[in-house]
Design a binder for these strands. Structure first.
Lengths: 130, 130
DNA sequence: ACTGAATGATACTAAACTTGTATCATTTAA
DNA sequence: TTAAATGATACAAGTTTAGTATCATTCAGT
């Protein structure tokens, strides 16, 4: 099971580069140094913008800047933007079939673990990763 | 991302049934009540036996029993047997290409989180889940 | 011995997710 | 007007997960 997929890894590297640069950086400018295929990086940067982590400016000379300081961008934010929210806990029986859904012992335990992981990934910030 | 895949979920249910039964249970006897396709359950039970969580007896009247008391079978054991060890941390660059492998900040953080999750899944036992 | 019920091992198919590619539309500065 | 950039979206390939099928082996009961 991967917590950090390739896309998350790319996203962290790209954001670190944006943070270092201070000014705006284009996807093309990011992809090269990071060793990431340009179209992939574009998709990732778009997801980060949709998630409110970066702000983009279009057109010639455009690019991406951080929407807030690195210390206020968490690994959890990045994962959520790129992959959607964490879900350790996909009930096999989808709630409909399983009457124990609310009381299921496994699910309760796993939900608790998931909350801890969420705490952890929110505690790590881009500032720690740059 | 799923910590609990369908197979792990099945495995927990099946083991809980074995624990309740006290005596040995066959895959066929387990699959029905749990609502799991029989061949799937067989594969899972085989994995659990290979992992030393259950002991099997073959031939007529055979089946599965727990290899040790429920309190000593952890969710971590079950996950490891069915899916292999947890790996949050698949380095994108596979170590060969990436010179920062040892110092990579992201990897260090994620490894720490992984250790915590390992602690957690080892702390939950089959006895808690039955 | 024979038979039927059971696991061991393994190969295969199907579905879902991840990764990477391609295209076209829109915006903006020069 | 043009070139450089993002927005949106559709598509293809690769990998993982889920489920199926088969044959070999073991063992109790007759």
């Amino acid at each position: 099971m991967k917590l950090i997929t390739r896309e998350v890894d790319y996203a962290v590297r790209a954001l670190a580069a944006v943070a270092r640069a201070g000014g705006g950086l284009s996807a093309a400018g990011l992809a090269g140094p990071a060793g990431v295929p340009r179209p992939v990086l574009r998709k990732i940067m778009q997801a980060l913008s949709r998630g409110g982590i970066t702000r983009s400016s279009r057109g010639r000379g455009g690019g991406f800047v951080l929407a807030r300081p690195p210390r206020r961008i968490s690994l959890g934010d990045i994962i959520a933007a790129v992959r959607g929210p964490l879900k350790f806990n996909d009930c096999v029986f989808g709630g409909a079939l399983c009457h124990n859904h609310r009381t299921c012992l496994l699910r309760g335990r796993v939900a608790a673990i998931e909350r801890k992981v969420l705490d952890e990934v929110r505690r790590v910030t881009l500032a720690d990763l740059s």
